[in-house]
Design a protein around this nucleic acid. Structure first.
Lengths: 231, 231
DNA sequence: TAGTTGCTGTGGTCCAACCACATGGCCTAC
DNA sequence: GTAGGCCATGTGGTTGGACCACAGCAACTA
């Protein structure tokens, strides 16, 4: 076993045992290196891995932002991993979109009408009304979909949904250049968002799932996703 | 931007441009460091991240196994990430199981009856007939489920399915200690596997999805998954 | 011809040093 | 007594160099 994996195993143990939890601070790199009798280099490699996994956040200086603290952002980490594999032509974008439809339609069907994230989603829709810039619109759109997914109450589905969205975010942004008229497309998306939110709030799970499916597939159909190998 | 992220960005560019592809060799660490005008340490940190993402494999010495080569094993990487977040109590095991049911029942329903991975799945079932040891049985079980998922032809679903299974593999193994009689449970699982495979081969997608759902939920119900916080 | 030996290049590990940064306490000037 | 500036401290970020184990291969030797 390589040295940095020893550090990773130690940290995983501490997490499983509850000694470390979200919000905890890891010992300083130099102290941890001495404690585990390894070099600071190996400790840093382990921390880089944990950072890529979305499990820790490192900051320099002093104060609350400094040091290495346990966080939990699985969506970003999974998204980055997927994005790299897409770049390596190992994961077709079409499969990502299809999986996203699968997860998100399930989430829409299983969302509870009184979930606290639904008002958040509604606020995001209000902000999108006045938003004309493409990338800002897409950023709000991403947050809306994540809020919708959270209403189903499954953290894994939410994280994977967000990661799928993030993995092809740049791709989706470039796709908008294919659209004949962004303003009209945006308006259509706004209406679809409102319909989805209404269906979820009304508890009409069948309609919600169908609307979500059509919403996502419709966008990529209009923007011209090439099936079978696009990246 | 930190130095190792610069290296990551460079490698992602090379991947996206097709200069690097699966099977390619990365330049040697010392050469890459000089080429990008960074230290070898930073190059190594980037490689550790890519390794954790399942994108590269490093080997010492000379020959085909040596050096750092581009691979693609997203399932293992995603699984390790999920496992750590489970250890940090941020992803409930129940949510992982639920997501697995979602993905796998979808895969069973969308599997094509003539997929090349179905004969592989059948072979795995034959080997499980004679397998009595728990961990070996679970290992074959994992491969069977992945083969089944691959029959649906969606690489992302397959990878996520495998990662979900891997993230709680150790957990499932410990759960078997709760079972009153492993031999009878194993026999039941074998019969269910055969039924699932038969339904998929017959193209009966509705039955296949229902059988998969009951198969997975039944196991965790019998083994006693504590809902809401077990890890 | 067959075996051995050493050269070469690879990643793996460690160390020592320096930098940039943010905080907090001390010290000075008013 | 207060306000301002300054430096000591501890953090991660980065670098260069050194050494090791390993696997292949070529040159050399018996």
């Amino acid at each position: 076993m390589r040295t940095h994996q020893l550090v990773l195993a130690w940290i995983e143990e501490q997490l499983a045992a509850g000694v470390l939890a979200v919000g905890s601070r890891l010992p300083a790199e130099r102290a941890l290196a001495e404690q585990l009798a390894v070099s600071r280099t190996s400790v840093r490699e382990a921390i880089r891995v944990l950072e890529a996994m979305g499990l820790v956040r490192s900051g320099v200086g002093s104060g609350p932002e400094a040091g290495t603290v346990i966080t939990s952002d699985p969506a970003a980490a999974l998204g980055a991993t997927l994005r790299l594999h897409v770049a390596a032509s190992q994961l077709p974008v079409a499969d990502i979109v299809q999986t996203r439809v699968l997860l998100e339609s399930w989430a829409a069907a299983h969302a509870s009408a009184d979930a606290p994230s639904l008002p958040v989603a509604a606020q995001l829709l209000a902000r999108m009304e006045a938003c004309t810039e493409v990338d800002a619109f897409l950023a709000l759109d991403a947050r809306f979909h994540v809020a919708l997914a959270e209403a189903a109450g499954n953290a894994v589905v939410s994280a994977m949904m967000g990661s799928l969205r993030g993995a092809i975010e740049g791709y989706a942004s470039r796709l908008t250049a294919n659209l004949p008229d962004w303003a009209s497309t945006a308006q259509r998306l706004r209406l679809e968002h409102a319909s989805i939110l209404a269906a979820v709030s009304a508890g009409d799970s069948t309609a919600a799932a169908a609307l979500v499916t059509e919403h996502i597939e419709g966008f990529y159909r209009e923007a011209g996703l090439r099936h079978g190998g696009a990246n």
